[in-house]
Nucleic acid binder design. Sequence first.
DNA 1: TGTCGCCCTAAGTA
DNA 2: ATACTTAGGGCGA
Length: 438
Amino acid sequence: MTGVFSEWYKLPMSLSELCINTTLRCGQSFRWQKIPESEEWRCVLYGRLFSLKQDSNHLYYRTYSSDALPTPPSSVLPSRATSDTENNDGKLHTEKPGDDQLVSILKHYLNLSSNLSELYNQWSAQDPNFKKKAAAFSGVRILRQDPWEALVSFICSSNNNISRISQMVEKLCIHYGPFVATIGERVYHDFPAPDALAGKDVESKLRSLGFGYRAKYIYQTAVMVSQEREKGWLNDLCNPESPAFGIEAKAGDEMKPEGRDGYRNAHEKLLELQGVGPKVSDCVCLMGLGWGESVPVDTHVWQIAQRDYRFGKSSQKTLNKATYDAVANHFRKLWGQEAGWAHSVLFTADLRSFADRLATTKKVDVKVKEEESEVKIETEVKTAVALTAPKVEAEVKNEQEKDIVKGTASKKRKAPAESIIHAGHTTETRRTSKRLRR
DNA sequence: TGTCGCCCTAAGTA
DNA sequence: ATACTTAGGGCGA
């Protein structure tokens, strides 16, 4: 089968508004494929193979069309979690030229409506640590992924790494997702719909494919979403201000330290699913449902909170429900309504695979003023390398840099005991624990 | 309410 | 080489 790419179209885009080289590999999406020896990224979205590349002034995009499988009907465009093809596609049947619809899809998926530079400025003004860390990581934007895909992807993410999660998601697409195109050796499928993963033999098949204990979670969640919930159940948990593609935006409710009511509700409902705890639920809320205040707290973020925000040391406190809510609420109060976006910037800055951003390291003495105390500490000054150069990671030069990457450095700072933040003092105790309801 | 052992796998580490 | 740990958790006791 043959096919052809469209010409490249382009959108004006600065790297501070969107850096695809960071955004597409920072662990929020797992399906984007970097073409070797090229700056090009590919992924199937809404049944179409998209291709992206970027320079300092523009984002370039094109799509691929197979001869035997022309542009899919627009009925596939609404989210896969809705197996209803008749009610939700009203806005998608408009007779727009192809490139016009492509740019709508891209602007929606890439979440381009907000001004990211302005958000970085606000977070930096509120938080010196953010300002310091974010310098080398501009253009990290939260994508609007399909809620169902986000749900399954983050069920896969437990006790796992980005590389293997990506492989598992790829297997789901190849074995259960609709075929889209073949280019060279590479076969492109879209992500499977819920009912495609609810078959009787799915669990055993996934186990044989190396999913481990996640196989049961995926199968059980697919059954619940496709058979035991109303159609559109998952999409209805979306932030009304950030709805699924093709749905009208509505006004949202009021922001609170623990998040808006709609966010709390979505978070809670997701906990009913198998294999979904607080962290996975927050990932889906943030990256699939458009709730910007969702702050997923994993072991990594927990370490960041202890290291840079004076939460109790790990030897004293473990990451439990109370500390989870305390950390998330703290970041919501610090960064505001889009706290989850800021969180992702710091998370990315600590990812091992981005060690090449810490190209040169030299020791200097810096006076850092934090709250009342002025502490003289020894710190590292990192100089960013070009953001558009996805080169092979430079070898970690010495133990010091290795520690930075692992997030185990900076035991040098000693914080006053009074300023350590304790979970019980900073958050209202929530009674919404998944386990307590059982 | 908090803590612990267990669940799967593959790559990295000692 | 072989055992152990880690990698963006969740669940039940």
